[in-house]
Computed example of a mutant assay.
Amino acid sequence: MRVLFVENDTRLCEAFRDLAISLGDVADVAYDGHQAMLLIGKKRYETIFLDVGLPDVDGRDHCRHLRAAGPSKLACVVAVTGDARHLHEQPDHFDGAFLKPLTA
């Protein structure tokens, strides 16, 4: 499976990527919305973990944009947020959500 992690916390993003690779997935990372859109425009991702609070774009708007067109428009998009309010406001365009910090 090809997975994209979009997260401005570089250490967390790289940890997600390393975990996905250890499970046998192909994983890419983007640290902001601009990088993410460049990758999403070129590659088809089956799953995208998308930080809602990116520094350059609102993750909810970003999700609507990627769902509108392109090779990843049918991807499973999971919101990742540090704000619990976003879990209750989860728009229909996200397929799921995780609250940071992630714990076992």
Rank of each mutant, 00 (worst) to 15 (best):
R44W: 03
F49C: 06
V80Y: 00
R60E: 12
H65R: 15
G53V: 01
H62T: 10
L54S: 01
S22D: 15
N8F: 08
K73C: 04
L74E: 09
A69N: 13
T10D: 15
A20Y: 02
A97Y: 05
L87H: 09
I48R: 00
R11W: 15
H88S: 15
L23S: 12
V57Y: 13
G53E: 12
T81Y: 04
P71E: 01
T47Y: 08
E7C: 09
G70T: 00
K73N: 05
M37D: 11
A30H: 07
V29E: 15
D28G: 13
V52D: 05
K42R: 08
H93A: 11
R64Y: 04
E14I: 08
V77Q: 03
A84F: 11
A79R: 03
D61T: 06
L4A: 00
D18W: 12
A15K: 12
V78D: 05
F98D: 07
G82I: 01
M1N: 11
L50E: 00
G82R: 01
D92A: 14
V3G: 02
D56H: 02
T81V: 02
D18S: 13
F94M: 10
E14A: 13
V77I: 07
A30I: 05
L54N: 07
G24H: 09
A79E: 07
L23E: 12
A68R: 06
V29M: 14
C13M: 14
H62R: 11
G82N: 10
L38T: 04
H65Q: 15
R11P: 14
A104Y: 12
R60L: 09
A27G: 05
F49S: 02
A97H: 06
L19W: 08
I40H: 01
D83R: 14
A68S: 10
K100F: 06
P101I: 03
D9V: 07
R2Y: 07
L39M: 07
H34T: 13
F5Y: 14
D83H: 09
A68T: 06
V57I: 13
V57C: 11
D18Y: 11
F5D: 08
A30K: 05
A15D: 13
R85M: 13
A20N: 04
P91G: 14
A36N: 05
G82K: 03
R44Q: 09
A104S: 14
C13A: 14
G33M: 06
Y45L: 02
L87N: 08
H88I: 13
A27C: 04
D83W: 13
G96K: 00
P101L: 04
R2G: 04
T47I: 10
T47K: 06
G41S: 08
D61Y: 09
T47G: 03
G41H: 01
P71A: 03
G59Q: 02
Q90K: 15
A30S: 01
